[in-house]
Design a protein around this nucleic acid. Structure first.
Lengths: 210, 210, 210, 210
DNA sequence: AATGAATGAGCATTCATTCAT
DNA sequence: TATGAATGAATGCTCATTCAT
């Protein structure tokens, strides 16, 4: 990203990143076309290259700018004095709401996680996961301290497990393959049984954690 | 896939599918080059097009031929008279072994699940998940009947949860992004702490299920 | 063409030349596929290359074998003691009949005449036109001698004019572009007004010749 | 054709259409190479695809842009107060002049008329012939009204006959096959006997029409 | 002689990136 | 700074021709 981009009016920056995010989410990195992004953003291709060094650079910044949005979920975990199970339920319900409201974000995340270039993948992972991991860990440790989670499991690892489960659920509500997969496991009408999903998930996680 | 391909000596068929699988796994569908596959398989591009209608047709059959291999894991679940927890442990250890031995398979799976075309993604999901879903469900129902898993959770949904968890673990051992992610959550040396991973995972799942 | 082909049973030779003729007529030389010809003829591609040196060699022989058929029309001109106008009418009616019965022959002819390679085009022209030219000339000379055609026009050139006119009519009944062209000039229903065409053509030619 | 092409300086548009026209005329549609056209026109392949959707689209517009040039001949027919025979002579002489000056145009026309795709051929015919047909018809009707052409022949059909004859003559001066064919009928030196051709043609047509 | 699998040069088309205006 | 036309390398796919069986 260049300083030229940073000097742009915030609205224009947002417009460009949104257009790029949609294109990348919908078509995947390889199939995304710079010209399509330019058109959708209402700027010229030439300008895009004034703002970003190349396609990948743009992708990087789309991801970076999406991270805040992806981390919205974490706010729920940050609240103190709330039972971990209650937090879990809130997260589950928020996943159902937000994955449907903005599936593109999850598609973008899924596409990024499927990235094949090792160095790049590592960069993405650090960029995206570090903060989330810290918050998950923190929340679990606190829950352990007040006895809501049994002390004999490793907070760090269980944070990984918990986040994995949430991630898969998010994908299941937003990404084509995973949506179909969920239907195969839990029935064609699973998308209309949100309470059931929350209830079952909670039952499982509650015991797993306690 | 054409009959010409089916009439090929098994060794040659395998050679071609392996070369294609590697290329697709390593570079992803878009970046995979037919010419590279041909070279790696020791055949001409023209031949590849005698065997498969087009690149995507080839991908389809690489996936199809990989499914059997992916489902190897399921054999563990099929054994009767084995405690579900024991099965789970065996699966965890097998995941660690096989994901490292053949990470390409998991990369292929991850890439396929990140597929962006809705219709194609659905086709893939049905092709890949249907059989696995059935076996997971069956194993859990049996465990419920003999009291190894509590009866008040939905077998179908819990099959989804269990498989999701295993899937994420497989990705964590085989795919760049997920490997990094696991390290962020559980420490740089997590790859050398297989027993720890199994133990923690078991603790969590055991309680979750019982 | 090889001796192998000549030693084939006449039926097989005919079958191959017919299949090739159809393919060449329907798709044109460039778009004709050797494999399609092989399939249609019920032989293998390998065999085709045992019979002919290459695609063009095959085309050459398809044309050569079609010439006899194309020259069927000339028999009408060869009859002695028949008025040139009567001959003309017979030819016109035969054009209408044969162009519809076997439009492929005319398509082949049209495609050949559109040939762009100078040397090849010259070869084709000599091969196809020489005999016809002789017969046209001869018929016109005879008609001039008995006073059916006025003596002050050049027999050779008028033969060219006459044949040109017939050729265009043949194309008009058999080839897509020329069919449409005729309709544009003479109305959509011209194909159902054969007597009109003959009558008008005769009026014009009669005066032109006498 | 795209608006990008239309916005090009006229000189550049002409340069590209000329390069394309030459390539298509000389090699035929199938054998024409986009890269050769680009090179000849002094632009990149990429640009050609910015100007035209695909090869065939380019061909279409080459034809379309050639039509005006092809119709130059028709101006002769449009003059009023000129005897139809005089017009005919002028046309014959103009055919001799222009077919030699720009044989590519006629090659292009011949190649187009040999088109094998029915729908496309019909499109071409309408595009190319409609205007010419109208003018031929009009000229003949006028000549009939003032008694230069006898009234008992159908103006529309005779327009077709007349145009056919002119077309064949044009081909004979410009296209390999037809040039050879003319020589076979009228002698090797026919190309040097322009007056003879005009004279003979006129004799024939004069009587045919009157 | 017959087969049809194998070959690979060849070409249309795309799209990230550049650059003149 | 903004534009969008220009570039050309890159790649999927075809098909005439060859050749081992």
């Amino acid at each position: 990203m260049t300083s030229t981009f940073q000097n742009l009016p915030a609205e224009k920056q947002a417009r460009i990143l949104r257009a790029a995010g949609e294109e990348f989410a919908l078509r995947g990195f390889e199939n995304a076309k710079m010209s399509a992004i330019a058109r959708a953003a209402g700027v010229s291709v030439g300008s895009l290259y004034k703002y970003f060094d190349h396609k990948q650079d743009m992708y990087l910044h789309v991801i970076r700018s999406s991270i805040a949005e992806m981390e919205q979920l974490l706010q729920i975990l940050s609240h103190t004095d709330v039972d971990i199970i209650v937090k879990t339920e809130r997260i589950l319900r928020e996943i159902q709401r937000s994955s449907r409201k903005n599936p593109l974000l999850m598609k973008l995340y899924a596409g990024t996680a499927a990235q094949n270039d090792p160095a790049l993948a590592a960069w993405f992972a650090r960029e995206i996961e570090t903060s989330a991991a810290r918050i998950y860990r923190q929340a679990i440790r606190e829950a352990q301290q007040i006895g809501d989670i049994r002390p004999d499991i490793d907070a760090d690892f269980i944070a990984f497990v918990l986040h994995s489960q949430f991630m898969m659920l998010q994908f299941s509500y937003a990404c084509d393959y995973h949506t179909e997969r969920l239907k195969i496991y839990a029935g064609e009408d699973i998308a209309r049984r949100d309470d059931f999903v929350v209830e079952q998930m909670l039952k499982f996680l509650k015991n797993g954690l306690r």
